[in-house]
Design a protein around this nucleic acid. Structure first.
Lengths: 235, 235
DNA sequence: TAACCAATCTGGTCTATACCAGTTTAAATC
DNA sequence: GATTTAAACTGGTATAGACCAGATTGGTTA
């Protein structure tokens, strides 16, 4: 319990982080250095670090080191604010990168949702989004090109909600959301530079137009420590 | 990557679970047995098991063994269904245990929310909830006794929404929700029989009456593999 | 039959060590 | 000064072994 070595080490770093002796984003000493300082093996040090990672206090970059987790951004789906907007409003710097884009035939699930024939073309978009230089979110989405003709020719690193508003006079309205706390699939983990198996937050979102048509189906994989979900339910 | 021993072992068990050769709730061989069978050390075996745990496929019971995770229950806060109801509807067996109950003075945050003087009495209730015998959820809540006089004398293992409806002609309506994927605090982990540091889902909920008064402030800690959140946003 | 107890089994924690694969750094070279 | 290259450093993976504490089991005793 409280006397275990890894537990004490967790407490040590937790305090340093809470007192801001270790500041947000700063690097921890290497696992070997910590082990030397506390006369512990790397196995024990890593157990403590992994627990702090699960707590969301620190995170790692592959073969670079361990870092203090920056504050999480608050994501409020019902506000209908774009990623860029709510991240900026909370004092962070957003950035979006397009990893892949292609027109592809809709699978059965997507086709049914969008009320289009199976194999009808939809736009697949794969993006990585950053907060303060840190990759926090992988997005894979299917966009209903029937409702948004020519959208594949636009700059798809920008905010989609802006694009919809400006070019198509459409806005996000109703949405269905599914949240699941689980480890990141290896493809998403790779894209985020995380070792596979790290905990993450999976969000599946279906966006509807004002007239109840499916505009977009979105699969998001967040670093678990990067986001807090905030929802108000009003009947 | 894919050639790593732990990774292959994960694949092995993932397949057994998906094919239902290993059935929901059943026990895996002991870490030592697995190690012997695959000529791996316990460290490696444990890494694979811990990854599968993060994935939500298996879970452990302290010093008892590893078990296949049962299907997650879907929790839809906007449906206003009670725990007992939605768990039952999905074919599981719910059970609630009261761990602690006491009248205590409201702290500043609670008092402000409930619009009562600081230190005014509120009912603190601490419960553990089970799905099919498995503890999945720790609830700590503060109940506004001004709106619900005498509630502390009722049977508080039952559904609160039922109690409110039957005895007070009140119903849950609006609510504010905050979700965060993080490791369970040690108190909650102990209550769930989980080793501290395991990932979990933390939900903070504020329940309002129809006339916008705060009925209850609720802190929930879920096993991360036991629940999926489902929300429909309709403006 | 019921209660107890000891052996055994389980995961939990920990030491010591090794090699690998990317990253960073600093020296050597152009 | 800019570029290349090699050494040093980082976390990632893995072996081998040890002891602990709670859970289970089966036999012994009352």
């Amino acid at each position: 319990m409280s006397t275990h070595h890894y537990y004490q080490l967790q407490g040590y770093f937790r305090e340093l982080i809470e007192l801001k002796t270790l500041k947000s984003g700063s690097k921890l000493p290497s696992e070997r250095e910590i082990g030397e300082q506390f006369k512990l093996t790397r196995v024990t040090v890593r157990q403590a670090l992994q627990n702090l990672e699960a707590e969301g206090l620190i995170y790692r970059q592959n073969r670079k080191g361990w870092f203090v987790t920056p504050p999480a951004v608050v994501y409020n789906p019902s506000s209908h604010l774009s990623f860029n907007l709510y991240v900026t409003e909370q004092g962070f710097v957003p950035h979006t990168e397009k990893l892949m884009q292609q027109i592809e035939p809709a699978n059965a699930y997507i086709a049914q949702l969008m009320n289009i024939p199976e194999h009808a073309p939809v736009l697949y978009l794969h993006r990585r989004r950053y907060i303060n230089q840190r990759p926090v979110l992988i997005e894979k989405m299917y966009i209903n090109t029937r409702l948004l003709p020519g959208i594949e020719k636009e700059d798809l690193t920008q905010s989609l909600s802006q694009l919809l508003k400006n070019n198509y006079q459409r806005e996000y309205r109703d949405m269905d959301l599914v949240f699941k706390s689980t480890s990141l699939p290896s493809s998403a983990a790779d894209d985020l530079g995380i070792s596979a198996g790290q905990p993450g937050l999976h969000i599946e979102r279906i966006n509807y137009t004002a007239d109840k048509q499916v505009l977009e189906v979105d699969y998001e994989f967040w670093r678990h420590d990067a986001v807090t979900i905030n929802i108000a339910i009003r009947d």
